[in-house]
Simulated assay, not measured.
Amino acid sequence: MKGIQEGNLLPQFEAKDQNGELFKLSSVLGKVLVIYFYPKDDTPGCTKQACFFRDQYEEFTDLGVEVIGISSDSVASHKKFADTYKLPFTLLADEGKKLRKLFGVPTNLLGLLPGRVTYIIDKQGMVQMVFDSMKAENHFPKVIEQVKRFL
């Protein structure tokens, strides 16, 4: 499965956020988006990644960038994760792994661990960067550098 590649238009999708509200991609089109898939709430690497986005959140919002985290955890798990770490951005529950399949996010570690992939989408909805690395820290400098290119 190829999935979403650089140069593709982002397909429309919807999912429940950490508050149980239906999130629709159409509600944030026209902004630069950072959409990141992560394996699991409240694990060391995923917490580090979420806290990176939390700590940089004001810089992102000042630039008009929307941050969205996605994993297959439940709405309740996302709510607890967001509350515990004071995450100010949207977390989407991909309980049926439909979004993971739509984006073509691979699994790692013999197919046991959901992959960690970050997508940068420009204001026109075009995917400008796909970065796949299980090491959470590898995503941080790439995201900041790429986002600033589109503003």
Rank of each mutant, 00 (worst) to 15 (best):
R116T: 07
P141W: 06
G20K: 03
Y36D: 01
V130M: 12
K101R: 14
L91K: 05
S71W: 06
F13R: 03
Y57N: 12
L113R: 10
Q49N: 09
L99Q: 01
A15C: 08
F23G: 03
L33F: 04
L10F: 07
L99N: 01
V28A: 03
S133A: 15
M1A: 12
Y36A: 00
L33M: 07
P114M: 02
V127M: 10
D122F: 01
Q18L: 06
N8Y: 07
V117W: 07
T118L: 14
T90W: 00
F13D: 03
K123L: 05
C46N: 00
T43P: 13
M134Q: 15
T61I: 07
G30T: 02
E14Q: 14
I35W: 05
V117H: 03
A82T: 10
K148L: 04
K86G: 08
D42R: 09
V143I: 14
A136F: 08
G104I: 01
E145C: 06
V32D: 01
F60D: 00
V143Q: 01
L151A: 09
L99E: 00
L113K: 11
G96Y: 09
R149Q: 15
F60G: 01
F23C: 04
D41I: 06
T118F: 10
F13G: 02
K40T: 00
F37N: 05
E95M: 11
T43S: 12
F150S: 10
S71T: 10
G69N: 00
I4T: 07
K135Y: 13
E21Q: 15
I68M: 04
F140W: 11
T47E: 01
I70Y: 07
T107Y: 15
K80P: 15
V105E: 01
A15W: 10
L110M: 15
K24F: 06
L109S: 13
G7C: 03
S133I: 14
G115N: 03
N19M: 10
C46R: 00
V105D: 01
S71G: 07
E14K: 14
L110E: 12
K101M: 11
G20L: 05
D132A: 11
L87Q: 03
K123R: 09
V127N: 11
V105Y: 00
R149S: 12
G30F: 06
E95S: 09
R116V: 08
G69D: 00
D41V: 08
Y119L: 07
Q18E: 09
L87G: 04
V117Q: 03
E95V: 13
V127R: 08
S71E: 06
K97E: 15
S77F: 05
S27L: 10
Y38A: 04
N19E: 11
L99W: 00
L102R: 02
L25I: 07
V105P: 02
L33Y: 04
F150L: 12
V75L: 04
R54I: 10
R54N: 08
I68W: 02
V28Q: 04
F60V: 05
P106D: 05
T61Q: 07
I70Q: 08
T84G: 13
L110G: 13
D41R: 00
A82R: 05
K24I: 08
D94K: 03
V28W: 11
L151M: 13
I35P: 01
L113Q: 08
V117F: 07
Q56I: 00
I121W: 00
M129C: 13
I4F: 04
K16L: 15
F150Q: 08
L87V: 04
